[in-house]
Nucleic acid binder design. Structure first.
Lengths: 193, 193, 193, 193
DNA sequence: AATGAATGAGAATTCATTCAT
DNA sequence: TATGAATGAATTCTCATTCAT
């Protein structure tokens, strides 16, 4: 992985996060990355490829998290908690990345669009939970979509919070706690009569 | 409310929904609205004002829904269900509008950004529920944000579904049912020991 | 035919003639035409379309000449002379046009390439001459191609001549005389034993 | 003559012939020549120098032909035929070279432009023919220019013919025959009354 | 009020050339 | 000599906005 390519990726994340994809010019990306415009085009076919690359890089991180978690043998609720917690940790460390992912999803290329990593992972875990009798019979796709939406909302709140607020982000801890509580009661089959 | 202004708003919704704000030119909006480009500028200060206007129009519709619901005297879970149901109904009727709201939120002006209608309504209802002892003690802001996110996710699934799928949208009914089930168990205080 | 479109055509001819198609920027065309760059794109899809339009305009002039001449009932050698003379007259009046036609033929679009007006006209006349027994049996295509080439060479000499020389252009008269003399003897069948 | 320099010349001919001077990038020349871009600049000052070098190389070949022919003691018409035949043979062997010469003449440097080899040779022969009384009194410059133009036209027809057609190129034989027939009758003084 | 031709700043992308290795 | 990553000036084309009619 070239030094310059990484520099460009990082510069693009900062700018896409702050100004959005369309408002960010290749000139500014280059300047912030400390390279010439032409250099961007030595590593990427065009501006949108830079965005795609950001998504792809992020997606493989999520893939790693999922692989790690799915191998653990534990209650599906714990798996959900683990994966969401890990996700939030990533977000805390790369808040700008989240802003980009949230804002620019519709600007990425078709192939990248199909990835939708986290949502699929949640769906897998929920499906397993239903199969193993831990969860009541619900539609895993719809449910995972909603959980995913809830997570996105928290990320959005975080990414829109004041800079000061970001430095003590208990938001994630509180949100995780509340979400898990709701899910625990809401999904658990033993609760059902 | 001028006839032309409304024509422009409708044309813009269709195009913003399909192509996004930045990919839509004022020329195309004008053509689809059946007016000249210059006419757009007789009603709006600039292109972004058209987007703002779309958001504002939508927001006042949501306001009406909320006013209606908040006056009903019933269990807060029922209020939640009513408001979400009404929201989904609106979405079914104006799917393109939703696509615009979801995609272009970050392109609107600062004032419009602050509106965030539905989320505030949810928060009010949840706060009331807590106060009245119907809901357990949770953070209403975080919780409403997550519910709002779950709703957005469903809308997103809907707005990205194939055209054919849109014509028989039981998605909303199922999603509403599942969401309410989870919330019922997850929020209700009587469930708590 | 819009005033501006014509201005742009004329400016482009001058610049393409002097600097060539690729060395001429759209900015300079606009400046010389006294319009804004954007205006070029109100009348033409892209820069190459401007070149195509130059060729097409010229082609229809040649078509007119041909139509006029082919209706005259006279010896095919006279027809050749008439058409070449008329052609040279056009060239004298629009020397820059010729330079463009000679230099930029390979940059025009496919459709325009196929026109090859004058050559076809010559071929028609020669074919007729052969059929009517005035000319000996030669390959009309090859022969017209060579005559066309000879004419181009003269035009090239003219377009490359010093400015001063252009103002007394007997070159064409002399060339026409010599060419006709050679063709008269070279093509005439009565000369053949 | 360095091996690499020759490789670059050959690569450039192929690409200039197919795509034209301006559409050919130095990167592609380098790739096709099997060297690095930088290497081109070890042998040539800039891109245009490569084109100049192609013209110069070709010009010295033409010079050799002329020297050979001009030493033969025979009728000027035979000399014309010999020189044109030899020229066509070269063309058959290096069709791409011809395409380059025809297309890119106006892109070469000033010094190269002045060479105009073949035309000068033709003019010499015609002048000699007039002086020796074999040809009637014509303007040798104009006449050689026209013959040169006719030859170019044939080359152009050849270089634009389908690939298949190029493999059985009787075109040149027919063209040569017809051109010589016309010139024989058209130039010969004995034919004159 | 409505029009739409004209505008020109601005953006993405290209590519000849350089130079450190 | 050879290399090829880096450069950044230059170019084409777009499109929001204006304003004379």
């Amino acid at each position: 992985m070239s030094d310059k390519k990484e520099k460009i990726r990082e510069a693009a994340i900062e700018l896409f996060a702050r100004d959005g994809f369309h408002e960010t010019t290749t000139d500014r990306i280059a300047k912030r990355a400390g390279v010439a415009v032409g250099t961007i085009y030595n590593y990427f076919g065009n501006k949108r490829d830079v965005l795609d690359y950001i998504f792809l890089t992020e997606h493989s991180k999520r893939q790693d998290i999922h692989d790690e978690v799915s191998n653990v043998d534990t209650h599906p609720l714990d798996k959900l908690e683990m994966i969401i917690r890990r996700h939030f940790e990533e977000v805390k460390e790369n808040p700008e990345m989240v802003t980009v992912i949230l804002r620019e999803g519709h600007n990425v290329g078709e192939k990248v669009k199909e990835l939708e990593g986290l949502k699929k992972f949640l769906e897998n875990i929920i499906s397993e939970g239903i199969d193993s009798g831990h969860f009541q019979r619900i539609d895993a796709a719809i449910c995972s979509s909603m959980i995913f939406g809830a997570i996105r909302a928290i990320m959005r709140d975080f990414s829109e919070a004041e800079e000061s607020a970001k430095e003590t982000p208990e938001l994630f801890d509180q949100a995780l706690e509340q979400l898990m509580m709701i899910l625990k009661k809401g999904l658990d089959d033993s609760n059902n009569q």
